[in-house]
Simulated assay, not measured.
Amino acid sequence: MRELDTRLGFLGQFSAVDMVEVRAQVGGTLTGIYFKDGAIVRKGDLLFTIDPVSYEIRLAQEQAQLEAAKARLVLADQELHRIQEPKQNDAGTAQNVEQRTSDRRAAQAAMDDAQARIRDARYDLDHCGITAPFMGRMGTHLVSLGNLIAGSRAATSPTTLLATLVSLDPIHLDFDVSEPDLQTLSNYRALTEGALPSNLELALGSDTAYARHGTLDFIDNIFDRSSGTIHARATVPNADFRLMLGVSERQ
């Protein structure tokens, strides 16, 4: 890193900007694995499938309940309309209208509930296929075909870890800054009225040329007295996927 005509040398380690544990939101038998261990996947790529039959059955049942609720609502509308006709002027009409109105509201509520149950059932069915939330590299699959896996929408109950996915581009470079180097950065900040030095030059492995560039975007707010350093982080483009997580690099 060149600042104030001085190169400050650090040894850093790459880490993912995003990492996710791939878990199911519904439970069932694992019926498909659609990636190779260590492969690069794109956002939306299908990773796993769960047997959908039980969820298809539930959706069909809820759709049948909706049809029944619609029929009850139609009948309630007809009964209410009939009793509200002018010729219905007997002494019990007001009470009957109130009862039919209540029946109609109950029928409408039942239909609304059936529609909500259909959305719920369809949500479960749609999540029998587990897709990649972003582009990245897959780890190894941790569950084999035919296994019964546990799923939960909000992870309120134990769920089965299927695999891990880490992002690749850009990538984070984590490193520690010594107290003297931190002072140099502070001096730079004072001279530039608060701006942080941002441009980093990186050398990969045993390379002597600083051929890659990154951006310093974070310095921690607590100095670690036990190690005499403070943690910092840069973001580095990695369009060719050459940079690997956990590898140490110089900057």
Rank of each mutant, 00 (worst) to 15 (best):
E193M: 03
Y34I: 00
A60W: 08
A190N: 11
F175D: 07
P158C: 02
L30E: 09
E249C: 15
E67L: 03
L80S: 10
V143H: 12
F175E: 02
F35D: 05
R104V: 05
D224I: 06
E98P: 00
Y55V: 03
M244V: 15
Q183E: 15
S178C: 03
M135G: 13
A209V: 13
G136Q: 10
L30H: 10
A107N: 11
H141P: 12
D124K: 11
I222D: 01
A155D: 13
H141K: 04
A155F: 08
P180N: 04
D112L: 05
S226D: 13
T164F: 00
T159A: 01
D207I: 03
G44D: 01
A94G: 00
V236G: 09
A209F: 02
T156P: 03
D77R: 06
T49D: 11
G9P: 00
A203L: 05
P86V: 10
A239G: 14
N221A: 06
L196P: 04
R58T: 13
E3C: 09
V177A: 01
Q65L: 02
I50Y: 03
G139L: 00
N147A: 15
R23C: 04
A163E: 06
Q13S: 14
E3A: 03
E98L: 07
S186V: 12
A154F: 11
F218H: 03
G9R: 04
R82T: 12
S54I: 11
V74H: 03
A69C: 04
S167L: 08
H213K: 06
L47G: 09
K36M: 06
